[in-house]
Design a protein around this nucleic acid. Sequence first.
DNA 1: GAGTTTGAAACT
DNA 2: CAGTTTCAAACTC
Length: 336
Amino acid sequence: MSVPIVPAQTIKQVAPKPLTSATVVTTTQTQQRLIMPATPLPQIQPNFTNLPPGTVLAPAPGGGNVGYAVVPAQYVTQLQQPPFVTLSSSPSFPASTGVQTQARLPLNGVSAAETTSRPRKPCNCTKSQCLKLYCDCFANGEFCNNCNCNNCFNNLEHETERLKAIKTCLDRNPEGESDRRHSKGCNCKRSGCLKNYCECYEAKIMCSSICKCIGCKNFEESPERKTLMHLADAAEVRVQQQTAAKTKLSSQISDLLMRTTPVISSGGGRLPYTFVTKEVLEATCECLLEQAKKAEQTHQPQVEAERLILEEFGHCLMRIINSAGKAKADCASINC
DNA sequence: GAGTTTGAAACT
DNA sequence: CAGTTTCAAACTC
């Protein structure tokens, strides 16, 4: 998983890479933080206006825009006073601590995944070193973290290479990538713009006149799109109903565990029948009914419907038995 | 899980 | 700018 960029003010603690002689500087503004590199990188002069959101820049010590370290904002401490802190001397940044490990720690009570509106999937890049826009993490201005990529350079350990790659990208596409993506439209030819290959469809927006797609079916009145939407909605409702039924069954079982003292023989293998109460039965029936509805809505043949229902019944029974067994074990362990 | 398809990004 | 290649994700079997 990659490290999402979040507003710096949501962060209490920081897990930056231990940088020798590096200095963190807070800006007077809100979301961005400045971090000075240990080594100036004079060859790199990023365009300040076009960096990904959350990117932070810092001039090297000594004044002037000599060199920069570009890091996601959450790597940098939310510093109030004083405005200048030397990382290497700060007790907050133990030199032995790895960046990527700490980056996953909950920050200010909020984990990294929770601080972003769209948790990104881990990338699987093998050849791009995660330094090209093929890499979703890099394209979104994020470090790779918990990804499955090989030979990854999209991290603080390869800051120089990363900076060069950012500069190359900016040279190639002076506009910000995320802005550009939806102002350029798609070029789909075979997907009908109704699969996730299509950037518009993936972003859940209609194709527009700026797209150059062929055979587009991703427009408001498209019957194919409507059918797809209905199917997706129906599937979502089914999943929600099933989840609700299962949650209710679990809740009934755990509720029962809380307020009953099952009759358990000390050495016998029999489980207490008292777990099968009216409430548990009702919840079980709801689960079975949901399976029946699901089979009906997906037009399953009767044999398959029966199989699904029986399977669900088996699952319900197993959960009741497991709960009863657990209660028995718990009870035995406290000699009740 | 392996192989195929797809379209954006990168390259020429 | 157009055509081609590379790439990683989406998809299918």
